[in-house]
Nucleic acid binder design. Structure first.
Lengths: 223, 223
DNA sequence: GCCACCGTAGTACCGGGGTACCACCGCCCT
DNA sequence: AGGGCGGTGGTACCCCGGTACTACGGTGGC
């Protein structure tokens, strides 16, 4: 069950959101806030999985409210809703730690799937915003040409097979055995076998040491 | 009407995509390519709106094919499909000019809406990839304006106390709770309390993510 | 004086991780 | 034909890690 707090200064807008969300079996609306301060207070009280946050609100605005909610360190994720897809909002919201951005007039399904994604730890961005995000991101990437140095060429990894190195890479990215199994289309028992062999071959006592090894050997690069 | 070219070396995979796409009234499959060179040639011939591009293909891979298709200056957009959401793929694909990234085992609806978004000029990223994209993007943004972030200090660590940062450092070194307790002269329950709070504040689901965070924020340096 | 925060510590519980086995298949090499 | 190796899969078991609570002393601010 996903719990949601709605933060918007327009009662009619809140009503619409509530109707939509409550029509879903797996979503519960814990409450409604009409400004940023209320949103912060209610989040601290109710610990919703997701706060649906409007940016423009009287008093404390949505960005600042987002910043404080994220800083509180709770598990609550903030999904920012904006009427205009203005860039400065996205930037400020990103710095504030929001988990996603949607446009208010999105399709209901988009909103719902966005909430579910954010609740499960993923992030979402409205399609019309994604383009800019990609462009801006690409612009800031290191200038390398893609060809060149092969990572993970370390003596401690030499005993590993291709497959094992592949598994070690995703271990280094923090994937759980279950995730590895699902994303690589394997049985969890197979993953465990691989992991066990990797630990034995590299002399790591647990996957944590393996993660560290993956970083030290540059098999995985800091992001 | 949206026209699509499928580029994938696995016939079965191509068949699945074709079946899915042709079931849609507004999408037409113009053809199928089984490697990068074919994809480039067929794109130049058929001018599809979207190329569904697998990364792993014999001969010319999907990244290079994407680079050349985009460089050709046609209106064709490339939507990259990957089995593994490995970061270097995303980076390379971005530099190559792809309009989106989806994971192969995504829901059919996700794939379809992705194709439609890309065809209409938007960009899409699989929800499970978006998080990293946002994080990486936010990291590269110019430092905040008014509100004071501590200089040289990563935002994701700002909520941590001195002691918690200390604990996170040794978590990053791979110490177990028992070891931390022994070496820092604490009760293991205390260590667990600290670790729990660190995970909550940093949004890490387990200590593995915390280790990765410690490396990414350079709280711990590769040895 | 009171409250918020920090660091410390405890208990109880559960799930995932890791280990120790075993097994089967496909491939390549001798 | 046989054997080794890599990749896959299974079962059974135990322990550590993580969560959810509660609690208490010290400190600093209002």
């Amino acid at each position: 069950m996903t719990t949601v707090l709605i933060a918007d200064d327009q009662p009619l807008q809140r009503f619409g959101f509530r109707m939509l969300l409550e029509s879903q079996d797996d979503i519960t609306v814990l409450g409604e806030a009409s400004n940023g301060s209320e949103a912060i207070r209610m989040t601290a009280e109710l610990h919703p999985d997701v706060v649906l946050m409007d940016i423009r609100m009287p008093g404390l605005d949505g960005i600042e409210a987002t910043r404080r909610i994220v800083a509180a360190g709770d598990r609550t994720r903030v999904l920012i809703l904006t009427t205009f897809d203005l860039d400065e909002y996205a930037h400020a919201g990103l710095r504030a730690g929001a988990s996603g951005f949607l446009i208010k007039d999105a399709q209901p399904e988009e909103l719902l799937s966005g909430i579910r994604s954010v609740a499960s730890g993923d992030a979402v961005v409205a399609p019309s915003l994604t383009r800019r995000l990609l462009d801006a991101y690409a612009q800031h990437l290191p200038a390398g040409d893609g060809t060149g140095d092969v990572a993970g060429d370390d003596a401690r990894l030499s005993a590993l097979t291709e497959r094992e190195r592949e598994i070690l890479t995703v271990i280094g990215k923090g994937w759980t055995n279950t995730e590895i199994a699902a994303r690589l289309h394997l049985a969890e028992s197979t993953v465990k076998t691989h992991v066990g062999r990797i630990l034995a071959k590299t002399g790591s006592r647990d996957r944590i040491q393996a993660v560290i090894l993956a970083y030290d050997t540059k098999l995985v690069e800091p992001s």
